[in-house]
């Protein structure tokens, strides 16, 4: 394989260029555009985690935003009441979201299907009502202001600055997506596919549908909690409208239009559908019309999602480069 070394070099070059672009972004753009990229990265974690639940296990969870909100409130309250920084708040958010998912799952994952979908919607609404009405704890509709980003004191880094927070969120998003991909591709992930494709057959060959549905639900909530914590400490303010169904809708668009049954798809979906609606603001009142048109065209021409466009683009690359990229 004389060309192998050269191809490996090319693949590394592509990855290195990508990484360099990600690192260089704050040097080139700032302000509002950087803000959008930070939001896109947070949504990428959220969409990828929902992509595992819907795309791999086929569990149509319409309450995923609840775990995002639980994570945001957990982290925010720990910071505001006890002065616990985001470093620990992030872990606590992930942990509490997972525990809530486990409890909800224990109630509803034995009967999946339609009832599951409805219960997840109701769960998100209940969480919203709690955030809204438990005024002593959450200040209700007034929300919680003053949730500061973390610092690394001995290095003198304060993530209050947008560019620093960008790097922080990119690193965490990368780690989360990397972990989600590993889970998706592991034998545990095969079990998720069995739940999606044919749980009766899965059961008959020893793949417990309940166990795998529970695993995917808890993992999804874990990463949603992380995204929630990042959101709270970035925006510095949260309110009960975090739990609104409209967030679920845009999340579903990211996951489905990004590409079901992949992790990269929802990540691409999160980038595109965070940025596109914002940049469509130039069209003022026609913004949502254009957005709707884009969705319809997308469903008609790239039914498997944006990941399909990406794959088509990759196919233009030499086979050996593709293979190396797939490997690492």
């Amino acid at each position: 394989m004389a060309s192998s070394g050269a191809d490996r070099g090319k693949a590394r070059l592509v990855v290195a260029l990508g990484a360099a672009a990600v690192v260089a972004v704050p040097l080139v753009i700032g302000g509002y555009h950087l803000h959008l990229l930070i939001m896109a990265a947070i949504f990428a974690i959220l969409a990828a985690s929902l992509g595992l639940v819907i795309g791999y296990a086929g569990l149509l969870s319409l309450g995923h935003v609840a775990f995002f909100g639980i994570g945001a409130y957990t982290s925010a309250l720990l910071f505001l009441k006890f002065g616990i920084s985001m470093w620990w708040g992030l872990l606590a958010a992930a942990a509490l979201s997972s525990v809530m998912a486990f409890l909800l799952g224990a109630l509803i994952l034995r009967v999946r299907g339609n009832r599951f979908v409805i219960v997840t919607v109701a769960f998100a609404e209940i969480m919203r009502l709690i955030a809204h009405n438990w005024v002593d704890l959450t200040r209700g509709q007034m929300g919680l202001p003053g949730i500061l980003p973390p610092k690394i004191a001995f290095l003198g880094i304060d993530f209050n600055d947008k560019a620093s927070f960008y790097y922080l969120v990119v690193v965490i998003a990368f780690l989360c997506i990397w972990m989600l991909s590993r889970i998706a591709r592991s034998p545990l992930g095969w079990g998720f596919l069995a739940v999606r494709e044919n749980e009766t057959l899965g059961e008959s060959v020893g793949v417990s549908a309940y166990r795998h549905a529970m695993a995917v639900f808890v993992v999804g909530a874990f990463f949603a909690g992380i995204a929630g914590s990042l959101y709270a400490h970035y925006i510095n303010f949260i309110a009960p409208d975090l739990f609104y169904f409209s967030y679920t809708t845009i999340l579903l668009v990211m996951v489905v239009m990004g590409g079901l049954g992949t992790i990269a798809g929802p990540v691409i979906g999160a980038l595109v559908f965070t940025l596109v609606p914002e940049y469509l603001r130039v069209a003022s009142e026609y913004r949502l019309v254009f957005f709707g048109a884009i969705l319809i065209v997308g469903i008609l021409f790239v039914p498997r999602g944006l990941i399909e466009l990406w794959e088509r683009a990759l196919r233009a690359l030499p086979a050996r480069v593709r293979e190396l990229m797939a490997r690492g």
Binding site: W190, G191, L193, V205, G206, V207
Partner: peptide
């Protein structure tokens, strides 16, 4: 390969 999950 799905059935291999039966025992692990």
């Amino acid at each position: 390969r799905m059935g291999s999950l039966c025992h692990q």
